[in-house]
Amino acid sequence: MLRNGWRPHPFRQYLLKVHSRCNLACDYCYVYTLADQSWRSRPMVMTPELVAIAAERIAEHAAAHDVRSVKLILHGGEPLLAGHTYLREIVETVRGKAGPDLHVDAAVQTNAVLLNEDTLRSFSDLDLTVGVSLDGSRRANDRNRRFANGRSSYDLVSDALGLLLTPEFRHLYNGLLCTVDLANDPIETYESLLQFRPPAIDFLIPHGTWESPPPGRFPDSPKTPYADWLTAIFDRWYGQSGETVVRLFQEIMNVLMGGSSASEAIGLTPSTVVVIETDGTIEQTDSLKVVGQGAPGTGLNIVDHPFDAALEHPGMVARQLGWDALDDTCKACRFGRVCGAGLYPHRYRPGSGFRNPSVYCPDLYRLIEHIHSRLVSDLRRATR
């Protein structure tokens, strides 16, 4: 299928929304607190029948495109609310339908408050890896990540991470996901995360658009609060070989050095992620929930439609077009190919849709410029 020389890229990452509710009430959550409230009308848990159909569709799509390896990400809400026995059944179902010619790498993204030894033993049998959400120290984490009654989640997450760090389960530990809060000190946050010896850290900037900007990001202001926060960590992290991988920094450095990015937030690598909701709905990236009710939708479901149909959705196409999807401002920018206009939902502006720079444009430019300067300086020293 060719359109002006463009060929669709098959899906390789399947984000399965196995449970649509959560046991925490994080005040920045894009599922529950932002514009799209579709979770309210969806079933709590994906049924075994829908799981089986999803597994068939994944195998079908991979076979049609000669894909030999895919990633299955169990997500929510909070996936552990579905119970580790059911999560095991889901992974086994998908792998069973995949057959011997398709490798299914499975992972779960969790707030970890329900993570215990029985769950981790089950995951270990499946080689199901675990990513944990944590926003730093107790004080930093409890600004946003509490139970609905206001109770702290920190001790439960800390205990779960202690289990992940034991020799029996260390191989399952994917890393930490931290949402940036400008009220938290960046170095304290980073060093608090390091205490849990993560193999990688993902710093996630809060979701927002030009219409509904994120906290502290005033669209017409040249100030760069998020870049200031992140560059402080970059300077602390840079050169500390073996300490941990900070994926945002690593991806920026990869692209600056002529490589490609594995993240939708940086660069021009085509997106190959698709979301399946608990009712079987096929959706684009679920961070589009920040844009408006129904924004992630494709109008498709796994019962009646193959994943090939989703590849033709305009939103999916736009997230695979790379350079051709950027507006003229981004194309003229010194770092346009590095930034790639940032995360797709962050470009949205009423009237012009997604053909805009990111609402984080000044921050992204300053962060990339800072990392570029450090790299150039080091390369010059190395070649003297």
Rank of each mutant, 00 (worst) to 15 (best):
Thr179Tyr: 02
Ala295Arg: 07
His61Phe: 07
Pro79Ile: 14
Trp323Arg: 11
Pro100Thr: 15
Arg236Trp: 08
Arg138Gln: 14
Thr93Gly: 01
Leu182Gly: 04
Gly239Trp: 08
Gly150Cys: 08
Pro43Asn: 12
Ile276Cys: 10
Leu156Phe: 13
Gly280Leu: 03
Thr179Gln: 06
Pro10Val: 07
His84Tyr: 12
Glu60Asn: 09
Leu375Gln: 08
Arg366Trp: 09
Gln109Arg: 04
Pro225Thr: 15
Gly242Phe: 06
Gln109Thr: 15
Pro357Lys: 05
Val376Trp: 02
His370Asp: 08
Asp142Lys: 09
Asn141Tyr: 08
Ala227Phe: 04
Ile302Met: 00
Pro8Met: 08
His19Ala: 14
Val245Ile: 14
Gly267Cys: 07
Thr278His: 05
Val290Asn: 01
Leu367Ser: 03
Arg3His: 13
Asp66Lys: 09
Tyr173His: 05
His84Val: 13
Arg381Lys: 13
Thr329Ala: 07
Gly76Ile: 10
Trp323Asp: 10
Val180Gln: 01
Gly280Val: 12
Gly216Leu: 02
Tyr365His: 15
Pro167Cys: 05
Pro186Ala: 03
Ala183Leu: 07
Val67Lys: 03
Leu326Pro: 00
Ser137Tyr: 11
Pro48Trp: 13
Pro345Trp: 02
Gly315Thr: 11
Gly242Asp: 09
Thr298Arg: 00
Glu251Ala: 07
Arg170Leu: 06
Asn144Ile: 08
Thr93Gln: 04
Ser352Lys: 09
Pro296Met: 04
Gly294Thr: 08
Asp36Glu: 07
Pro225Cys: 08
Thr224Phe: 01
Ser212Arg: 13
Ala200Thr: 13
Gly292Glu: 03
Val31Asp: 01
Gly5Glu: 11
Thr298Lys: 00
Gln240Thr: 11
Ala200His: 05
Pro214Arg: 02
Asp181Met: 02
His19Val: 07
His19Glu: 14
Ala200Met: 10
Leu256His: 10
Val51Ile: 13
Met253Ile: 15
Leu288Ile: 08
Ile368Val: 15
Pro362Asp: 10
Trp229Gln: 02
Ser373Ala: 12
Leu80Ile: 15
Gln293Thr: 14
Glu243Asn: 02
Val338Ile: 15
Pro79Glu: 13
Ala325Gln: 12
Val274Pro: 01
Leu115Lys: 04
Thr85Gln: 06
Thr278Ile: 09
Val303Leu: 08
Val376Met: 04
Thr298Leu: 00
Phe203Ile: 11
Cys26Thr: 06
Arg21Pro: 00
Val274Met: 01
Tyr86Trp: 07
Glu211Asp: 15
Arg57Met: 06
Val246Ala: 00
Arg217Glu: 14
Gly340Ala: 13
Val104Trp: 01
Lys97Pro: 02
Val338Thr: 15
Gly242Asn: 09
